[in-house]
Simulated scan of single mutants.
Amino acid sequence: MQMPRAVGREAASRKYDILSALMAFALGEDKTVQRQVLRAMVLVTTRYNWQRDELSMGQAEIARLWAVDERTVKREMARLRAQGWLVLKRQGARGRVSVYGIDFDRMLDDTRPAWERIGEDFIARMNPAGAQAEPSNVIPLHKVPQPSGGGSAWATAQQILHGENAALYGSWLHMLTEAEITDGRLVLIAPTKFHATYVNTHLKDRLRRVLRMVDPALADVVVQV
Rank of each mutant, 00 (worst) to 15 (best):
H174S: 11
L22Y: 07
A157Q: 00
R106G: 00
R208K: 15
N127D: 15
P140R: 05
A219G: 15
G84W: 06
I123N: 05
E164C: 06
M23A: 14
P140S: 10
A196E: 07
W50M: 03
L173D: 00
D205W: 03
A21F: 05
M23Q: 14
V210A: 06
H202V: 09
M175T: 14
D183H: 12
F194G: 04
T177K: 14
M213F: 02
I62Q: 04
R208D: 13
L188G: 02
L38S: 13
R64K: 15
R212F: 05
K31P: 07
A78M: 02
R125C: 02
K31V: 13
E76G: 05
A82F: 04
A82D: 15
A219R: 14
F194M: 08
R81N: 03
R208Y: 10
R125M: 06
T192F: 01
N137H: 13
D17P: 06
L188I: 04
R90V: 05
D105A: 04
R52Q: 11
R106T: 08
K15R: 15
L211V: 03
M77C: 03
T72M: 08
R5A: 06
A24R: 07
T182G: 05
S20M: 10
V225E: 12
T192R: 14
Y16S: 02
A24N: 01
L27F: 11
V99D: 06
M77V: 15
G170R: 12
A12G: 09
L203E: 11
K89C: 02
V223E: 02
L38M: 13
S13T: 10
A129K: 13
K193T: 12
S136Q: 14
E61I: 05
S148L: 14
N127I: 08
R75K: 13
I189S: 06
R81Y: 07
P191R: 10
F194C: 00
R79Y: 08
K204T: 07
Q2I: 03
I181Q: 14
I123D: 07
V222G: 06
L141T: 11
D121G: 10
M126Y: 12
L141E: 10
G95Q: 05
G151V: 06
L211P: 02
R71C: 00
W66S: 09
R35Y: 11
W66P: 09
Y16T: 09
V87W: 04
L43Q: 02
Q59G: 15
G149T: 11
A124Y: 01
N137Q: 13
L218V: 04
K193C: 08
S13H: 07
Y48P: 08
V187R: 14
A6P: 00
R212V: 10
R39T: 03
D30M: 09
R9T: 03
G119D: 04
V97A: 12
L65Y: 05
T182V: 13
R112K: 15
D121F: 07
R39Q: 14
R185W: 01
R79N: 13
V221P: 06
Q36V: 00
L88R: 03
S20P: 05
V87P: 01
A82E: 15
Q36W: 01
Y169P: 00
R209W: 13
I18F: 00
Q2F: 04
K74W: 06
R9H: 09
L211K: 09
Y169Q: 05
M126C: 07
E29T: 00
M1C: 00
I62R: 07
Q158M: 12
V37S: 04
Q158T: 03
I189L: 13
